[in-house]
Design a protein around this nucleic acid. Structure first.
Lengths: 250, 250
DNA sequence: CGCCGTCTTGAGTGCTGTCAATAGTTGTGG
DNA sequence: CCACAACTATTGACAGCACTCAAGACGGCG
């Protein structure tokens, strides 16, 4: 049994220092939707920044009324889906600048949990105001469609990967993708990429057991594709792991 | 090698008899987005009906510029995603009244193929006009968000199922879902539910091989859960197939 | 220093993919 | 109406891979 959220303080810290937050996160948020900041001068007033969320704290829970979209100022977050039988499935990892919570757009309540992995600061864009903004700025609507569809497409590709790729390739692909996303946020040229999630979370996301993940990481390490550390890794090769099995019809 | 699309005539038949089409499909289209018909009187002029598409005909292809959303007047459609290596993955089956083509919303071109399974008539809602409509009617925007997210959620659940459920449960679940969707469209109380797709398509969608699907269908039949026919089946039980393996933490 | 959670490693089993052959179905043409 | 061909579906034998169960190593924290 996990004691996640034991030191929970979520939502209690409404930060007043808006400027830094806006300058940082509004850009991120809007970059995600493909529009320029100056196109939405009135969007600033809809942003609120919350934190700090401690590891294990929930930003929102399944069933919570949908009140906002979220963007990460600092830290990292995972989203979890709970099946009807109570089993958990990690559905995504989010880093600084990432948008999450969009899974509930169009619905009245959230359908998954968002849990901080590292100490995190989160920006909110309230949905009530979002709707008004969308009506005013069609580009925002289009941008949100894009975010939703990109995510759905990742799911689809993810799903395809389960079948058409070996597990080694899936793990390698995940690490490459994660490295790319991390690098875009890292300051220096550090090639050591931290992994904020546990191996268990990572395994859940990849739809394998922690044991298998451990074995495969070792295999990839032995093969010289990566270098594993405690809670980090180095990417030594950019090409996919060999052993392709999907060379059928086109 | 399949000769699909050999008798292709897609897009050549622009139907002028709009009334029947509108009365039928606009309702469906809007029901999907959760808004009432009379709220969008001007939507009528944006609808065009095309057909007939023969089995194997493509309604759109990967890379085609996004020009419309589609709703099915009659017949059935599958969508296929092509991986970078050329392998195919069926990503969805659509019946009368279903909306498809939303995968490209927010993008400039389609990312999958839509292929008719049975002779089909398709209604188009052109995206150029859709944007204007969305700005005018926030409910439409919300409705489309809902459609997108429901789909994404299905993908997520689908993905969860790959890991947390036995293959028997996945197949049974698919049949139950398909039966429900079909029944909503059937006129009588026929319990024989037609399957418009091949077993190969179905297997691809379920991320298994046709051989495994065949074995599992037989198993479900033997167990008295379903009754398989050539291109149809009967659902004998509504409960999930036993053998759950996800009774962990909650 | 000792506890506990995370991670790793090992042995054995079961399920699904692969390969291959057969049976059934559909559509075409004589 | 029948016969043939092409496609689709089924069934069997075998092997590989990931899951399960179980034990041990590592690391953080009190």
């Amino acid at each position: 049994m996990k004691r996640t959220g034991s030191r929970s303080r979520q939502g209690l810290h409404l930060v007043k220092a808006k400027h830094a937050c806006h300058n940082c996160d509004l850009r991120h948020l809007l970059r995600k939707t493909g529009i320029e900041e100056q196109q939405l001068p009135d969007a600033v007033c809809t942003i609120r920044c919350r934190g700090p969320y401690q590891p294990g704290d929930r930003i929102y829970r399944t069933g919570d009324p949908l009140s906002a979209l979220y963007a990460i100022t600092s830290g990292s977050v995972k989203t979890e889906y709970t099946t009807c039988t109570g089993a958990l499935q990690v559905t995504g990892f989010y880093l600084r600048g990432d948008l999450f919570g969009v899974e509930a757009l169009g619905e009245h309540s959230h359908t998954d949990d968002a849990i901080a992995l590292e100490t995190a600061w989160i920006c909110e864009l309230r949905t009530a105001e979002l709707e008004t903004l969308c009506a005013k700025h069609p580009e925002l609507t289009r941008g949100l469609f894009q975010v939703l569809n990109r995510r759905a497409r990742n799911d689809t590709i993810h799903q395809v990967n389960v079948r058409k790729r070996t597990t080694e390739q899936r793990v390698m692909g995940f690490l490459q993708d994660f490295a790319e996303r991390s690098r875009a946020r890292l300051t220096g040229v550090e090639d050591e990429i931290p992994l904020p999630m546990t191996k268990e979370d990572m395994a859940s996301y990849l739809a394998i057991t922690p044991e298998t993940l451990s074995r495969i990481l070792r295999k990839l390490d032995d093969a010289g594709y990566i270098q594993t550390s405690v809670r980090a890794f180095r990417l030594l090769r950019a090409e996919p792991f060999p052993g392709v099995l999907d060379q059928d019809a086109g």
